[in-house]
Design a protein around this nucleic acid. Structure first.
Lengths: 358, 358
DNA sequence: CTGAAAGCGCTAACAT
DNA sequence: ATGTTAGCGCTTTCAG
């Protein structure tokens, strides 16, 4: 009832054992329900525990068992709704199986990611889900994998790393949506992404992100199919904060031969691109067509509603957590299902370019 | 170089000590840099550790020191951009001080929250940040507080709980924005919130959320100031998923005397309300005025851009983490700054109601 | 500065 | 079924 003074030391099994008049081992067995305990002892122990409001020290428990019931999740930016949603899928699934989640942001910084992975390993998480900042620099992930800790990759593949990866293949959908733009009459199509690179885009350059590589590949295929090439200058990487994206957008739209369509690589970019377009006094889709990755609710509220490539983000989070937990618990990986795929949702932001009209 | 076979046991201080030819104690001191260690020993130990790629077991470390360098964060829904942003503020700040974050969602469910808090305590987090699902049922939080674990509340106050709380006071801003609507000529103003209650809203009823209480209080004050009362029927709580919100919106707009303005309690609700309005073929602000809490980027992209109550969400996350860490490290609480406040940002979604026009 | 030994709170053998 | 005794990997006395 009353908080009888003991602000001091925390209650341990030893205390409970004493109170219940049994050995520490028996008390521990009853509390952790393992081993064999008589009904009599069990009830006495439980009663004593209740009385003392005993709480197990999970740290100590983890130390002996080697299980922390915690998984580490490493993402680029939890503020990005894409990751917010995926994380929700992960935490929901984890909770169902009794796991907690330690979340770390990397800002897509490789060093931050390396450190994050290390910290998580030090904390003895049972497994890791990471959305790798780089598909190329993967030594730290390789290390994790070799250490034997369960690891699942989300969203991006890691080159030469044979690890279970939950991601949608982007080549096909990118090809499809580019063809859609091409058929509408667009030839000058821009692609804007935050992917950091040392130099401006050049066809065939090695990219750090499998996602972006695939999207570009799809675009190039669609172009070459009709005997054209995707102008390198229309691919703008290194888009950073809102300001930088705005500048890129202005550049794209104010050059001598302005692009007639812009593809935004994610929701955050999309926000700034659309804003910049509006600021220029241009309208979608009359002056510029617009297409973006990820289908967030707000894309339906703009006028016109935005044409998007929708990915099953939440479900991928669920799948990643499921796969990881399966690995942790040593069960066989679920029969590789059909895999995830993206869909092009045509709403109102793509139309014929001015030049092709009338 | 080669992974010399040892997929087995993890490397411990004992191994490093042996390799460096010193006692376990000395090795531990060098590795944890505490105590006194000669330069010679230190370098030998560090070299050995490097060679063996030793990694400290943070669990063991935490067990002796009583510090886990981990804080627990309990929020309603990480998918909600409001919490996504706040969480970003928390994790950024935590990382700077060397803390990690365990994140738990509650879906605003009290039992889930109680359990979450318990689990976190069992894991021996150094402190907790929680956005309480209820401002009334606070026994579990009271327990945390009494146990002596640092605790900071985010967004909502907890009745009778003397705990540091980071939240903006809502009464004033709600009063201000209601008056704004009133002055525009609105009299039938609706307020839609997800807050769960047993029965429909009735003036003066005890609400589970300090935030909502305050907002309603502000609204009522603005009404009473001009000799009117806020019709109870226009306050719609228990808004759940998108469908339920849609139904509520339709109800509000299709009743004999439809409301002329709707206030959405958060971004998620706003999305569904606006969508429902559009579905009804009505337009903002000609047919209905609209006001929402939280200023997300997309609110600037709709036509018209939405009038919002903006809260410094990220900064509040930062402040919450800062306050918590200060408590953990036993430093004096920062001189209570000016506190956080919200602002009404008038964009284009509020206009005179039809009846009042021409 | 260094080492031996005693814990942290719990689980896991190993005997009864 | 129950108790005794070791640990888990690290930090922390406490003597030198």
């Amino acid at each position: 009832m009353s908080n009888n003074g003991s602000r001091r030391r925390e209650i341990t099994v030893a205390d409970v054992a004493k109170a219940a008049q049994v050995s520490k081992a028996q008390a521990a067995r009853a509390l952790g329900n393992y081993g064999a305990v008589s009904e009599d002892v069990r009830s006495r122990v439980l009663a004593a525990a209740e009385e003392l409001s005993y709480r197990p020290n999970e740290l100590a428990r983890s130390m002996n068992t080697g299980k922390s019931n915690t998984i580490g999740v490493v993402v680029g930016d939890i503020e990005n709704p894409h990751f917010g949603l995926a994380t929700r899928g992960i935490t929901d699934t984890a909770k169902k199986s009794g796991y907690n989640v330690i979340l770390i942001n990397t800002d897509e910084e490789l060093t931050a990611e390396t450190e994050a992975v290390q910290v998580l390993l030090d904390k003895r998480v049972d497994g890791l889900i990471v959305a790798p900042a780089s598909s190329v620099e993967t030594k730290h992930l390789q290390d994790v994998h070799e250490s034997g800790r369960p690891l699942v990759l989300l969203d991006r593949k890691a080159e030469g790393l044979d690890v279970e990866t939950i991601a949608v293949s982007m080549t096909g959908i990118s090809y499809e949506s580019t063809r859609y733009l091409l058929q509408a009459g667009h030839r000058r199509i821009a692609f804007v992404s935050t992917l950091k690179t040392g130099s401006p885009y050049r066809s065939g350059m090695v990219l750090d992100s499998s996602q972006i590589s695939e999207r570009l590949e799809g675009m190039e295929r669609a172009f070459s199919e009709i005997g054209l090439t995707l102008p390198e200058d229309h691919v703008r990487l290194n888009a950073g904060d809102a300001d930088s994206i705005r500048n890129i957008t202005r550049g794209l739209l104010l050059m001598p031969e302005p692009v007639t369509a812009i593809v935004a690589s994610d929701g955050l970019i999309a926000l700034s691109v659309v804003e910049a377009i509006q600021e220029l006094g241009l309208s979608i889709p009359e002056d510029v067509s617009f297409l973006m990755y990820d289908d967030f609710s707000w894309t339906r509220l703009t006028s016109p509603p935005l044409t998007v490539v929708s990915q099953p983000v939440y479900e991928m989070g669920v799948a990643a957590a499921g796969a990881l937990i399966r690995q942790i618990e040593g069960r066989k990986p679920a029969a590789n299902g059909p895999g995830f795929s993206a869909r092009l949702i045509r709403r109102g932001s793509v139309a014929m370019p001015r030049a092709a009209r009338v």
